[in-house]
Amino acid sequence: MTRNSQQVLVERARRLAMPLGDGADARVTMLGFTLGDEGFVTALAGLTEATPVSHLAPLRNVPALYAGIANVRGALIPVFDLRSVLNIRAPRTGTLPIMLVIDTPQPAGIWVDRLDGLLSVERATLRRDHGPQAAWFLGRTPDLRTAIDLRALLAEALAHQTNRAAEAPNRP
């Protein structure tokens, strides 16, 4: 058997091994970005734009989750820094931050340090072992990028922040 024939057989075996129902959407295009020293990918659905932030108005006396307020074509939107939620210790990098605008009930910006372009990710290769048991964690790609659902992550971070704020007056 030729090497080419063997490759055809192996490729078919790989497809046959995929879970049913994932054939049509086996590969998905995701946006790659870097936050601190970690790489991430997120689905394009729900993202409205990725834009450099020329000016970010910082907020005083707020948790680290809130990076500030940005003006996007006349609309003021909150910008969130998920570094603390994701346990990223590396400081912010880059002089010109980039913001991903996600379509939550209200538009929200997510601070990222660098955009890494569109990446084609095979769903079947995402591994969920050794990761947080959370709805926003979709798995890790073979090149060790973390696939996340930005909307779910932001919702969880905000809920956590709200709970902490509610508990604060009860602390001795």
Binding site: R12, L16, M18
Partner: peptide
């Protein structure tokens, strides 16, 4: 009915068994 995929041989298996494939997990 599917196109023939690669079949993983099973050493020591009964000669009637050609091997094994991963069928949707």
């Amino acid at each position: 009915v599917v196109a023939m995929p690669a079949i993983t041989p099973l050493p020591g298996a009964d000669p009637r068994v050609l091997g094994v494939i991963d069928l949707h997990g």
